[in-house]
Design a protein around this nucleic acid. Structure first.
Length: 275
DNA sequence: GCGATCCTGGCC
DNA sequence: GGCCAGGATCGC
């Protein structure tokens, strides 16, 4: 569900939830705890003080004063919500609750359980197997066009769509923003990386950043499940040019949107515009 | 590389 | 009842 802009919007909405201790922690039996154990999560985080919220691609990182970080991935349907006081009763599929020392509550809910909870220590965070495989964030300043092109070139046989969704190349694009960025860069999602010029890959990077930045500015895309940490919806859906517009003109009127299936995911594109 | 797979819920 | 969904890993 949430792609980079949605996770960033959540991060920003929780920026004030710091300098407070975790008084108690509740983990459900079905909590998607990965690469560690519920016992360890409880032991490491109980009594820890929240220091900062970071983001890497679609991962949200909760830093504590103990050096341990909670690494959260929201999968397709995950939601993280903050309640300053008087939280409503826990809905179905509540997997984690952090009761804070000032009476506030952080609640992680994820019906489909595609999300994950894991832990990480250390600056580089490479001890966490999820983060270890992750390419640099799309907004990482170290990702120059040259660096990006080099990373793409490791996968000459991937389609541009598959490359865009590959979090090892660069982290943050999901199905919606991948379609939008390819449209803006005027690149055919079926084309192979190996058949794409450096300059075109660089254009894709540039348009990806522009699309992601607009997504953040508009508070993300709220299809159905997505809300920020305070329960607000984003309005980016109204500004998507091709995603979910099969059979209708692109939002900017440059042609009819087609839908195809690539790697079992829908791709929306305009063949006349994207070569 | 690609399809199957994890899971629940909403919509037709 | 069947299909589809904002993700990512795992086999083949």
């Amino acid at each position: 569900m949430p792609e980079l802009p949605e996770v960033e919007t959540i991060r920003r909405s929780l920026a004030h939830v710091v300098d407070v201790k975790i008084k108690t922690l509740r983990l459900s039996r079905l909590a998607p705890v990965e690469t560690t154990t519920p016992t360890r999560v409880r032991r490491e985080l109980s009594g820890a003080k929240l220091m900062a919220w970071q983001r890497w691609g679609k991962y949200l990182l909760m830093e504590t004063d103990r050096g341990v970080q909670l690494v959260l991935h929201l999968g397709m349907s995950g939601q993280l919500r903050f309640f300053a006081k008087e939280a409503p009763p826990a809905p179905k599929h509540t997997h984690l609750e952090l009761h804070l020392s000032d009476g506030a509550l952080l609640r992680f809910v994820d019906a489909r359980r595609f999300g994950t909870l894991s832990l990480s220590w250390g600056e580089e965070r490479r001890d966490n197997p999820f983060l270890a495989r992750l390419g640099p964030d799309y907004f990482d300043p170290k990702v120059t066009p040259k660096v990006f092109v080099g990373r793409c070139r490791r996968h000459p046989k991937l389609s541009l769509k598959a490359m865009a969704l590959n979090q090892g190349v660069a982290a943050g694009l999901g199905n919606i923003y991948a379609c939008e960025a390819l449209y803006r860069a005027e690149l055919d999602p079926r084309r192979l990386v190996g058949a794409t010029k450096d300059q075109e890959l660089a254009a894709f990077l540039k348009q990806s950043r522009a699309t992601l930045a607009e997504g953040i500015q508009r508070g993300g895309v709220s299809m159905r499940d997505y809300f920020d940490g305070l329960g607000h919806r984003g309005v980016m859906k109204e500004f998507l040019r091709v995603y979910d517009r099969e059979g209708t003109p692109a939002l900017d009127g440059r042609g009819l949107v087609h839908r195809i299936v690539q790697n079992a995911r829908s791709t929306f594109f305009v063949p006349e515009v994207q070569q």
